[in-house]
Each structure stands twice: as structure tokens, then as C-alpha cells.
């Protein structure tokens, strides 16, 4: 399989990335090279094999549904590019 520049532009939109006009062509080429590398898997009939999501086939441990963390809002918001009155600041979404 391979992608066209316009398909890749759609993928970029999904990934919230921007493909500049001059980058679009080389990036598409590089991605198609990578897809070429992974394409050999497409030819295999693996329908009988169960997909493996965990490298040791284990199920993740669950814990009791109780609060264990303390509130660290100030420490976390101190990392934000813009925060005010305990809120993260972003451009207006609704005019």
C-alpha cells in the first residue's frame, strides 16, 4: 500500500500536524518507503493467530477504586504555558 500527498495531508490533520507545501512531497516519499518496508506483512495469512498486545501476554493489574493521589493542581499548572485562576488558558473556542 502507498499513500498520496493528499491522503497524507488528511492523516496529518488527524495527527494535528501541519505539512508544509515544500515538505509534503519528501515526507510522502519517506512514509511510502516505510510502508514499503512493512508491506511484507500484508501478504501473510495470519487470521488464525490471536493478536498479541502485551509482550508477556499478561493482563494489567487493577487496583481498588479509591483516591490515592493528593491534589497538586498548583504544581502542575505551574508547568502550563498559560494558566490563570486555576484554569488553563487557550484561545477562545466560541466567539
Amino acid at each position: 500500500m502507498s499513500v498520496t500527498t493528499s491522503q497524507l495531508a488528511d492523516v496529518a490533520t488527524l495527527a494535528r500536524l501541519q505539512l508544509d507545501a515544500e515538505q509534503a512531497e519528501p515526507v510522502t516519499q519517506a512514509i511510502n518507503q516505510i510502508l514499503g518496508l512493512v508491506d511484507q506483512l500484508q501478504a501473510l495469512d495470519l487470521q488464525a493467530v490471536v493478536p498479541m498486545a502485551h509482550p508477556r501476554d499478561e493482563i494489567q493489574r487493577l487496583r481498588a477504586d479509591i483516591v490515592t493521589e493528593t491534589n497538586q493542581r498548583e504544581a502542575f499548572q505551574a508547568l502550563a504555558p498559560a494558566a490563570e485562576d486555576g484554569l488553563y488558558v487557550v484561545p477562545p473556542v466560541i466567539e
Binding site: M1, V38, L41, L46, P51, M52, P55, D57
Partner: peptide
């Protein structure tokens, strides 16, 4: 539309490797 052909297939191959 691509999930199973790529990601699902890769996870099946992963089991064969393991």
C-alpha cells in the same frame, strides 16, 4: 479502514515472533 491490515496484522506477527 487500515487498523486491522496494519496494526492488527503486526500484533499477530508479534505473537509468532514471541
Amino acid at each position: 479502514g487500515y487498523y486491522d491490515a496494519y496494526y492488527g496484522q503486526a500484533q499477530r506477527a508479534r505473537r509468532l515472533i514471541a
